[in-house]
Design a protein around this nucleic acid. Structure first.
Lengths: 168, 168
DNA sequence: GAAAATTACTTTAAGCCTAAACTAATTTTC
DNA sequence: GAAAATTAGTTTAGGCTTAAAGTAATTTTC
């Protein structure tokens, strides 16, 4: 009842809008951006303070951790949603710290497989545990219900964005 | 009915979780991050393609546009959630393009006021219009109801994150 | 099976971004 | 009102990131 009424109100609002006015959409986007920046900045700060590591390096290690047999640079760049050149540079720096290894692909000589070293695996395990607690702490005020609704709606938004990008 | 049942299930799930296990929180964070990156990357691409402008410059112009009398560098950096040094550099580049002006504060000689030039205002107006349509297009698959729920929940998440950061 | 196209990756140039150290001006403290 | 603390902004060194151009290997096409 309550839900349906608010849906009806929203529909009216939409009709009442001036054509081409998208203030609500813009507000949602700005809120998404602000929330993301807030979390990201704090995570960066803690990663640096506690582990002297950057977020991109942590992210790369997190990707590799899930693939014990390693991953090509291309696969890494796809999963991390960054360019190939970016990954080349990150891997170079992590190689120097002996966090990862890079070896030639067996059959395709253009390709290289990157894996975590034992040192890298140990270091990531330490960080991942705290990282999880940080996130849980930041999300703590949400109820289980709000939680799953938000996850679901973000999934839907992601799909919507993807389709808008695809057909543009 | 349906809602309450799923809430009960969720509460059970929470209790059933191993202590210190925060997989659901992590998944939500990764989804937020991925959605944000997806949108941001596409917006950057379009801004560059259509207007040869970067997202940080667009963001700075958007802040200034709302304050016709201008803003100090510190206020800008606060609103943009970036460092002072970052804003110094951005303003330098926008000055060179005659998008903004920088003049001394009347009473506080440490402070400088940045404003949009007429050229900057015109340029921003052109961009803002398309930008709004892009966002609306990307968010198009969501119903009005999902829309307002998502906005509300993100607001709550932001508050939760802020309080976690404040007390750490 | 040679030419053309594609793929995997690297390099380069330029901008973004940060933390830390700095300068100069203002405010607070005593 | 002089010393100490704070504030506004800049500079610097280093890492992140991208687009574009380049190299080398592989696959496709005919």
């Amino acid at each position: 009842m309550e839900l349906e009424q608010s849906a009806a109100l929203d529909a009216e609002t939409k009709i009442a809008e001036a054509p081409g006015d998208h203030k609500a959409e813009l507000r949602l986007w700005l809120r998404l951006l602000a929330t993301n920046t807030l979390i990201e900045t704090e995570i960066r700060r803690r990663l640096r303070e506690r582990f002297e590591v950057t977020l991109p390096r942590f992210d790369l290690m997190a990707q590799l951790e899930r693939k014990p047999h390693g991953m090509t640079l291309g696969e890494l760049s796809q999963r991390m949603m960054v360019t190939n050149g970016n990954v080349t540079g990150l891997v170079d720096r992590l190689l120097a710290e002996e966090i990862v290894t890079r070896r030639q692909h067996k059959s395709d000589r253009r390709s290289h497989i990157v894996s975590l070293t034992e040192k890298g695996r140990r270091q990531f395990a330490r960080m991942a545990k705290e990282h999880e607690d940080w996130i849980a702490g930041m999300f703590g005020d949400l109820s289980q219900n709000e939680f799953s609704t938000l996850t679901k709606l973000l999934g839907k938004l992601k799909t919507s964005v993807r389709s808008a990008i695809a057909q543009s």
